[in-house]
């Protein structure tokens, strides 16, 4: 299991990198979807079954599909504009990576252990996290309304 998860993390990172590096927009969206799926597998490996399923359902099923659709609508030729500041970006990000990786090497605690079953998450969402949950439902509603408002055609 451990080694499988290591492979999956590796694949997630590689495909995340490919999201950035790939010139073809559709390819990078597909890589993105793959890395979403990999993250879902990581969730499953620590016992967060509900989150794993939700991750796949929302990210690959909804977010990924929306990305693909929007790529189709907006960039027919499917090529993205070149990056800029490649090397300085690498330096900066590498610096940050070093700075946060350095202290986290010493963390040796175990992860997992709780069962992220649907029932438990549901209980949690409707008790301790009730207010954020309700707020987010409103946020989602307003996002739907906002998106339809933004995207509507003026001439209709």
């Amino acid at each position: 299991m451990q080694s499988l998860m290591l492979i999956i993390s590796f694949l997630v990172l590689i495909s995340a990198l490919m999201v950035i590096l790939s010139e073809d927009m559709v390819h990078s969206a597909l890589f993105l979807i793959f890395s979403f799926g990999g993250v879902g597998a990581l969730f499953l490996s620590v016992g967060a079954q509900f989150l794993g399923a939700i991750q796949i359902l929302i990210y690959t099923g909804a977010v990924g599909v929306m990305m693909l659709l929007m790529i189709y609508f907006t960039s027919k030729e499917g090529k993205s504009i070149k990056r800029e500041g490649k090397y300085s970006g690498i330096v900066l990000v590498g610096l940050l990576g070093f700075l946060i990786l350095y202290p986290s090497i010493s963390i040796t605690r175990e992860v997992g252990g709780t069962k992220g079953l649907t029932q438990n998450i549901g209980r949690l969402l409707f008790s301790d996290l009730l207010i954020p949950f309700e707020v987010i439902s409103i946020v989602l509603l307003s996002a739907i309304i906002g998106a339809t408002y933004i995207i509507r055609r003026e001439d209709h």
Binding site: Q2, L13, V19
Partner: peptide, 25 residues
């Protein structure tokens, strides 16, 4: 399971994402 490889994955994703945000157009 040890936390480390989750940490590595998440740090890697953050860095890649940040790199994308600041360099892509």
């Amino acid at each position: 399971m040890i936390a480390f490889h989750f940490l590595i994955t998440s740090i890697g994703l953050v860095l890649i994402g940040l790199y994308g945000v600041i360099t892509l157009r």
